[in-house]
Design a protein around this nucleic acid. Structure first.
Length: 663
DNA sequence: GTTAGGG
DNA sequence: CCCTAAC
């Protein structure tokens, strides 16, 4: 496969703080860069394979970068803009904001020596192999929650990867790269910085100020002391020194950074355990953050990265500097915790998930791979399905969501969940958006993979999250239409409300509908490969995504507007936000609806007698509507219902005849 | 690339 | 939902 996912970009190569969020740390490889560079976006699968990022993923990252630029860094803790990503240099329009951000000047793309590049790419892959190996181990031990990471590799500076292990020993359980010899990191960085030339100049950020922290053993990690933070804290009024203290109290370690802005941001993030750095005043009581002084309704990324590096430190800092060994344990716990919260329950049993975690982490790579293991996997997966996730905090997100959607942050994920993460063991809890799965790569949208929060480009996901992943696009028909043109591609996000989920409508009449358990539709396991027996005796995988009531209604609506057959139209105009529904899907669904609607005429409500509550039948009104439309469009299935067939095929109305203004 | 149909 | 033939 061609890794044409190379992207060009420039970067200021600033190195901010060594602490990276779990996933973000992978980004770090790309973080310190020279000028125009070429990134290669790859994904490390849970099973250790290195997979070129799909276009969608690239897009995703691109979106992030384009959309949030510096914020991405802030959020991702990458420190700086990773650089603009563009597949096509000639489409500068894609990165308008980025270019204007932080004084970044559009880079003059420099050509890269192919050979050199290749060599580097190879090297990168080699490095990634290590990561994968390590990852595998961790997975096996159930110590990690992430089965993959999205890595943006600076193909020109592959040696950057060497820094990964050294990024922050507190996170060493996060990013598996220990073998690479952390102790070398500093020098590597240095040398790189050096060769990059002027990297530091372009930044007022504490470039390598914290260099030492990058080493795995020099960080002074101590227990965060929130007691020092009692009362009201206004970061704005603090001196550097005070900020340092606060920093330490928050993260349990020292910092030498003298950049106030940075410190404030950092602390804010730490305190809120989110990317929201808008607030500068905090009220802390009993070691809990009770209030943020300043609320910003627009940009607070409560899409927080619970994985704030610093937080990670804090967490593991529960006990005195217990870096590595305990790290993973705690991490583990944290992970479990998160999970539990994710599923909206409060069962504190965290240990039970270990196994499940491990199993779940295994990510399904290629179709073929899946084919081979489908049997085993499906077995395992089915036994370990997780409960459905709830978007209990949907309301809270709405405000952000509007903003986000307005910014065209494209997110694709089916589940909007929330999570409460404890900050630094202090008990402070903050809402988060759970990781969302990315969309289908390339052509086949939701084909291969299920949305797996922990599998796909974690980076992208994270960033997304950071950006306020909840771009819960309105399903409003009109809105869709209005926006579809300009942001058509952007709106890939899908949010399925709980209510929707309850209306799982499967073709009540359809043949062998293997209704997935709700867990599946909650979208977070990837390997729940559902197989359906085929008539031939074989089994076929099926990525079933139950149609929600609203989707059905949308479809009906669409048909009534644009006419049956105009599926691409309908898809584009009415299903813009449902990226996973292809025009074919619409067609299929319509077909099923037709069948259902007419099949149900006689027995009327007999359908509801179905025991299976999961198979939410389609409300009669809708079926009625379907019937109407079918009749008016001569779509009535000939073999069904002999009573209401106006004229099967000879009528003047062609199937494609548009029903203008039916509504 | 889209649509229609069969599996 | 997948696949493919036929547009």
């Amino acid at each position: 496969m061609e890794t044409e996912v190379e992207v060009e970009g420039n970067d200021e190569g600033k190195f901010e703080e060594p602490g990276f969020g779990k996933i973000y740390s992978s980004l770090s490889s790309a973080k310190q860069l020279t000028d125009p560079v070429v990134y290669k976006l790859v994904r490390v699968e849970g099973d250790g394979r290195l997979v070129p990022a799909t276009d969608d993923e690239v897009m995703e990252v691109k979106d992030l970068l384009v959309d949030e630029k510096s914020e991405v860094c802030t959020v991702a803790d990458v420190g700086q803009p990773i650089g603009c990503i563009s597949n096509d240099r000639s489409s500068p329009g894609m990165l308008p904001q980025l270019e204007s951000s932080e004084g970044l000047s559009p880079s003059e793309n420099t050509e890269v020596d192919p050979d050199k590049l290749n060599a580097r790419l190879e090297y990168i892959e080699e490095m990634l192999q290590k990561v994968k190996e390590e990852e595998r181990l961790r997975i096996a031990c159930g110590s990690r929650d992430y089965s993959s990471a999205c890595v943006i590799v600076d193909s020109q500076c592959s040696d950057q990867l060497d820094k990964l292990p050294a990024i922050d020993e507190n996170l060493q359980s996060e990013i598996p790269l220990q073998e690479t010899g952390p102790s070398f990191a500093p020098s590597l960085i240095q040398s790189h910085m050096h060769q990059s030339g002027g990297v530091g100049e372009c930044s007022n950020a504490p470039v390598l100020t914290e260099g030492r922290a990058l080493t795995s053993t020099t960080v002074t990690t101590s227990k965060p002391d929130f007691s020092k933070l009692n009362g009201e804290i206004c970061l704005d009024n603090l001196s550097i020194k005070e900020l340092h203290e606060t920093f330490k109290a928050t993260f349990g370690r020292e910092t030498t950074v003298k950049d106030k802005q940075w410190l404030k941001r950092r602390i804010a993030m730490g305190l809120t355990n989110s990317c929201d750095v808008s607030a500068t005043t905090f009220i802390i009581k009993d070691n809990k953050l009770v209030n943020k002084g300043k609320e910003d309704g627009s940009d607070n990324g409560d899409g927080a990265l619970a994985n704030d590096p610093a937080t990670g430190t804090t967490m593991s800092g529960g006990q005195q500097g217990l870096p590595i060994s305990h790290g993973s344990q705690l991490e583990d716990q944290v992970v479990s915790d998160k999970r539990n919260r994710n599923i909206g329950d409060n069962s504190g049993s965290e240990d039970h998930h270990t196994e499940q975690r491990a199993a779940k982490r295994v990510r399904k790579p290629t179709k073929r791979y899946i084919e081979e293991l489908s049997e085993v996997e499906s077995k395992e997966a089915s036994g370990k399905l997780r409960p459905i996730v709830k978007n209990s905090l949907l309301g809270q997100m709405s405000s952000n969501f509007h903003t986000r959607s307005a910014r065209n942050v494209s997110l694709e994920g089916r589940t909007v969940v929330t999570r409460l993460d404890s900050l630094g063991g202090s008990g402070i809890q903050i809402p988060c958006v759970s990781r969302v799965r990315r969309s289908r790569p390339r052509k086949n949208f939701m084909a291969l993979l299920k949305f797996n929060p922990s599998s796909m480009g974690v980076t992208a996901e994270l960033v997304k999250k950071a950006l306020g992943a909840h771009s819960f696009l309105p399903d409003n028909y009109e809105n869709e239409r209005a926006q579809s043109a300009p942001v058509q591609v952007q709106h890939r996000f899908l949010g399925v409300a709980d209510e929707d989920r309850q209306f799982l409508s499967t073709g009540a009449v359809g043949g062998h509908h293997k209704v997935l358990k709700q867990v599946d539709s909650s979208g977070d396991s990837d390997d729940n490969v559902v197989t359906v027996p085929t008539s031939k005796g074989g089994i076929r995988r099926k990525h079933h995504r139950a149609w929600t009531l609203s989707e059905v209604m949308k479809l009906v609506e669409g048909v009534s507007r644009y006419g049956a057959g105009r599926w691409s139209e309908i898809k584009r105009l009415a299903f813009a936000s449902y990226s996973y529904r292809t025009s074919v899907d619409l067609k299929d669904k319509w077909r099923n609806l037709l069948k259902a609607s007419f099949a149900q005429i006689p027995s009327d409500k007999g359908i509801n007698s179905r025991k299976n509550a999961a198979t939410m039948p389609i409300p009669e009104p809708i079926l009625l509507r379907v019937r109407e439309l079918a009749e008016t469009q001569s779509q009535v299935p000939p073999n069904l219902s002999s009573s209401k067939v106006p004229g099967t095929g000879s009528s003047g109305n062609s199937v494609h005849e548009k029903q203008s203004g039916y509504l």
